[in-house]
């Protein structure tokens, strides 16, 4: 894993508290599962119909009838349950999932998220992302702070089609952590060795500084 991704994943896992039911998105969010403390009772939900995702199976024991939302072969943990897709999204839409951690392409200063479509390129579809951002009790987005051209992915307004409007509670990047509050976007943490000045320079969105702002050591 690249250092930036590891930084993000290590910070993201701190969002998970003992006893939570959590949905991790496909890609980088899936990696957060490996960092959950062993002594935590956390159930991971897979929107294709499982609460209680376990680790990848031992080679030779994979079961084609047992996959996660990323279509990867998985196992279950003790206490897991299977259900159909309508029940799965009843859980999500009904506010029973404590936390969703999703990837992002762009986040705006009012908490809009775009993560499913780039016009002009192939449109793959939104999968369950639109349901998750509107249904989970808490939505945390994790993404790299700037794109490969060095441009800020944190915008005044998203330029890409939205996944949800004013749905993000917290944004974690390789440089910083922001909260979205009724008073706007607030910088609450900078990553180790990152100055507020650098965050400002690499962020298109307007934000304020939390009085409790801390630099992670």
């Amino acid at each position: 894993m690249r250092d930036t991704r590891l930084t993000i994943v290590k910070r993201a896992v701190q969002e998970i508290k003992d006893g939570m039911n959590v949905n991790l998105g496909i890609g980088m969010p899936t990696l957060v599962a490996n960092e959950i403390p062993q002594d935590f009772n956390v159930l991971l939900q897979s929107e294709n119909g499982l609460l209680g995702i376990g680790p990848y199976p031992i080679d030779g024991q994979e079961d084609p009838d047992l996959i996660n939302a990323g279509k990867e072969t998985i196992t279950t943990v003790p206490g897991s349950s299977f259900f159909d897709s309508a029940e799965s999204f009843a859980m999500i839409r009904g506010g029973h999932i404590d936390l969703a951690i999703l990837g992002g392409m762009e986040v705006s200063e009012n908490g809009d998220l775009a993560n499913w479509m780039i016009p002009g390129k192939m449109v793959k579809g939104m999968g369950g992302a639109m349901d998750l951002v509107n249904g989970a009790k808490r939505v945390v987005v994790i993404m790299e702070h700037v794109n490969k051209h060095g441009e800020s992915k944190i915008k005044k307004e998203c330029s890409l089609p939205l996944t949800g409007k004013q749905v993000v509670h917290r944004l974690i990047t390789d440089l910083a952590v922001f909260d979205f509050t009724p008073d706007g976007m607030v910088l609450i943490e900078t990553a180790s060795g990152v100055t507020v000045e650098e965050v400002k320079q690499k962020t298109e969105a307007t934000f304020t500084l939390s009085p409790l702002l801390l630099e992670v050591q």
Binding site: P57, G60, E62, D65, I67, E72, T73
Partner: peptide, 12 residues
């Protein structure tokens, strides 16, 4: 056939 799209395993 029950094809698997992403065979993800750990080696014992």
């Amino acid at each position: 056939q029950k094809r698997i799209e992403r065979r993800t395993v750990v080696h014992a």
